[in-house]
Amino acid sequence: MINNTTPLSRSFEIHFRVIGALLMREVITRYGRHNIGFLWLFVEPMMFTLGVTALWTLAGAAHGSSLPIAAFALTGYSSVLLWRNMPGRCSGAIEPNLSLMYHRHVKVIDIFISRILLEVAGTTASFIILGIIFTAVGLIEPPEDILKIMLAWFMLSWFGAALALLVGGLSERTEIIEKLWHPTSYLLFPLSGAAFMVNWLPVTAQKFILYLPMVHGVELLREGYFGSLVHAHYDMAYMATANLCLMLLGLSQVRVVSRTVTPE
């Protein structure tokens, strides 16, 4: 194996540089310099959330509760975007960047991290901007507990990033993963807690649905938003453990892939 005598601080410096360069490269190829350019980064998820909010509002109080529906849709769908888009963007992420891997500083993990950062930034900006707009026009009330929202958002981002590393790493080893991820993410959406509160479910179903880590995050997000209006079910220790396991699995796959990757 290659002798690694580079000091850690120097390694970090190189990683930061490379991730910065990759971020610029992603922004340019994904959004270009035409029309609104990189603003698409958060306009795109905003359009999704707006559409879903409009649909759910039109469909009426189909969720069978007295919760304000716009706030319910904003918290629910934004969290879906958070854990669904990161793995989607990391799946097959190496191939379009293979030629850049001629430069030894560009590592597999840098490509994944840059895509994850971009996705988190876009979804977070969309969530905040829509929250401010909705509150300003009086569509929703301001949230009850911002700190809880921040913690929930962080946990959901961590979950999405860990899943992204796993899906991204595995997708380089076999193309089946890319094909499986689409139906999986589609089927997970109705189960993710975006469109319901765990408390509305029968007790037996609650037990099973709480095996899904992101449900805990969405519940905490809703508690932070609606406070005493909802009875949330979550266990952050469980979610953190699940995230940690996913992340270790993901990193191990990234490591396997980075040993075998061949520049174009």
Partner: peptide
């Protein structure tokens, strides 16, 4: 080089890394 980037953007990328 990354094919979708312009020559100049490739230069910028390489200078950055």
């Amino acid at each position: 080089f990354q094919g979708s980037l312009t020559g100049l953007d490739n230069l910028r990328f390489i200078c950055r890394i």
